[in-house]
Design a protein around this nucleic acid. Structure first.
Lengths: 118, 118
DNA sequence: TCCTTAGTTCAAAAGTTATTGAACAATTGG
DNA sequence: CCAATTGTTCAATAACTTTTGAACTAAGGA
């Protein structure tokens, strides 16, 4: 059972920007970026909303091509599609993450500040 | 008579991303970027929508801090707030414009391809 | 002053997005 | 098999966004 993802060349700039233009989703992306390499499942994000609501936001991110979700048992392992986004829109993800990196107006996962290397 | 603009430090990342996540507004920004230095008024953008609709989209861009509108007679001269955006979100505008630069899915102003130096 | 040009504002309609709870599926462990 | 865990789907609702036309304001020129 695999979930639908757009190909790299199907990733659309306005859709990506629109999807990132939501504080909850931006917080998800920021957290994913801070934990790159670490496998994260949906329940890591429950600080940001209800289970149902997170399912909705994570589906938006996945359908836009921002994240990849792999089914592993009953979990979905979520990762940033960094290489694909960098190939399609060079520098965009980096500048968004850098800009989001120190924004106290964004919700945070875990109720504590982000740790860049943890 | 001056129009309301946010200060540089009031410009919000999710709001900017959300505002740019609309094909019409992205086309406006792309065109403004291609004509930087040239004063442009609203009617330059009538290809992209009705007068009323453009007034709406240009107000969104201005209120988000993406553009500046100066009242000159009966016109408003529209410019990109490039320095302010670069200061607040380094690299973001450049990567968005570069990514939008060759996107045939975006509407175009003038019904022809953009000229970077014209 | 009267007309035109440039753009805004308003209210309505249409469409889209976000949020919720209840019900559902799939996998894993006992 | 049974129960718990993980996450999805569905339907409803609320909230927001986009688009439109008609009416409006403000400045500039004849």
């Amino acid at each position: 059972m695999t979930l639908p993802h757009p190909n790299t060349d199907q990733i659309s700039l306005p859709i990506v920007l629109g999807v990132l233009g939501d504080p909850t989703r931006l917080a998800i992306v920021r957290y994913l970026a801070s934990k790159e390499g670490v496998p994260l499942n949906c329940s890591q994000f429950l600080d940001l909303g209800s289970k149902t609501n997170l399912s909705y936001h994570l589906a938006k991110l996945r359908e836009a091509g921002v994240t990849r979700a792999e089914v592993v048992g009953t979990s979905r392992m979520i990762t940033l599609r960094r290489a694909d986004l960098d190939a399609r829109f060079p520098g965009l993800l980096d500048s968004v993450i850098a800009a989001a990196g120190d924004d106290p107006a964004l919700p945070a996962v875990g109720g504590h500040d982000l740790e860049i290397s943890a």
